[in-house]
Amino acid sequence: MKFSSSKKEQRFWAYLFLGFPLLLMSVFVFFPIAFAFVVSFYDWNLLIPDKPFVGLGNYFELFKDEVFVKAVKNTIVYTMGVVPVQTMLSLFLAFIMNQKIVGIAFFRTAFYIPAVTSSVVTSIIFVWIYSKPGLLNYILDTVGIDSNIDWLTNPSTVLPAIMVLNIWTTSGYFMVSFLAGLQSIPTTLYEAAKIDGANQWRLFKDITVPMVRPVTYFVVVMSLIGCFQVFDQIFIMSSGGPDNSSTTMSYYVYQNSFKYFRFGLGAASAVILALLIFTVTAIQKKYLPPDYY
């Protein structure tokens, strides 16, 4: 192939290499997103051949649906509970893992293992732990706390129980991100602060926390998105129950689309979920920017 200039040749190859993944992305990502958006304006039911255009009808129906309102509430509670605890815990773990302690490699591995274990496996294990004759009740009994509940079938404990599992499984992953951030902080900053008169707490507050802010931003964004989209643990551990007390927005989307085959309603709820994630992330970017130094 002949090109009139090397710039043109470079451009040709660049577009060629970009073209193939772009095609795949279009088929499997961009088109489904656009299609879901279109579907949300139709009463699209797999069981009924007729798919009439209903405009914002699905959206109006959603806000009248008690289950959807509950799902939104559950998702917000879940996110508000998990994100701060997960972020602080992973930063704290990273801070500990960054110290010169004997056997640090073991602890790093131990905390990271949940992040690489299949969420299905951890969920099944936790179903047993949270069951009436499970490990949690056994431990509580041993320390003298009388507990005879099934944590996953009790409406007031099911969501916190799943939140704890999520915090445990993902903290290890975010810990590694924080650890990388911590290790990139120049030691001279700590030394300068020590000479300036900072104690351990001020070193953490005035040097560590602001210096890992770009990582914190990344962790909070990823964690927010993960929480808004939580599905697998809910699906395996509680199926949204009891009485929809653990139904989250993702699970609601799944329920309507693949259980009741109401794709129009499912797509509308997915659009609202996407808008919610977009809005929260945009707010975070505006008011808590990553601040690269």
Binding site: T188, A192, D196, P210
Partner: peptide, 20 residues
């Protein structure tokens, strides 16, 4: 004694200014 109790000040090669 810890650095803060020695009444000294230090200037580092890479300045060690707090970037934030």
């Amino acid at each position: 004694l810890s650095p803060k109790d020695r009444d000294i000040a230090m200037v580092f090669q890479n300045y060690a200014l707090y970037p934030h």
